[in-house]
Amino acid sequence: MKLITFEVPSGALKLGALRDDSEGLIIDLAAGALDIGLENSSLASMLSLIEAGPSGSQIASEVVDAAKTMQHREWAGISPSSIKWKSPLPVPPQLRDCLMFEEHLLNSYAMLRKTLAEQEADPEAALAEYEAKGVYRIPSVWYDIPVYYKANRFSFIGHDEDIIWPEYSEKLDFELEYACVLNSYTKDVSLEEAKKRIFGYTIFNDVSARDVQSVEMQASLGPSKGKDFDTGNILGPCIVTADSVDADDMTMIARINGEEWCRGNSGSAHWTFAEVIAHASKSETLVPGECIGSGTVGGGCGLEHGRFLNPGDVIELEVSGIGTLRNRIVRKNQ
Rank of each mutant, 00 (worst) to 15 (best):
S140Y: 09
D160Y: 09
V147W: 04
L18H: 02
I234S: 04
Y149N: 06
I157F: 01
L221P: 00
A209S: 11
T231I: 13
R197M: 05
V135T: 13
L18N: 05
A247P: 03
E103R: 12
G56H: 07
L38P: 00
P237W: 11
L49G: 03
E167T: 15
L127S: 07
P146G: 08
I157A: 02
S184P: 03
L3G: 05
Y185E: 15
F101A: 01
S320P: 08
R255F: 02
S57Q: 06
G158E: 05
A52Q: 05
N205W: 05
A110C: 10
G16N: 07
L172M: 15
V297D: 00
L34G: 14
A67G: 08
S108E: 14
N107F: 05
L191E: 11
I253C: 11
M217R: 09
D35E: 15
N310G: 07
T231C: 14
L172V: 08
K68M: 10
L325E: 03
G236C: 05
I4W: 02
R73W: 12
A12W: 01
V135Y: 11
L89K: 04
S10Y: 07
A66C: 08
K2V: 05
D206T: 08
V91G: 06
S45G: 08
V212C: 10
G302K: 09
D65N: 12
V245Q: 05
F273K: 00
A126M: 12
A132S: 15
R137H: 13
I83L: 12
E259C: 03
A52P: 02
S294Q: 04
T272R: 03
A254E: 01
S244N: 14
E39H: 13
P92V: 13
V319W: 02
Q94V: 08
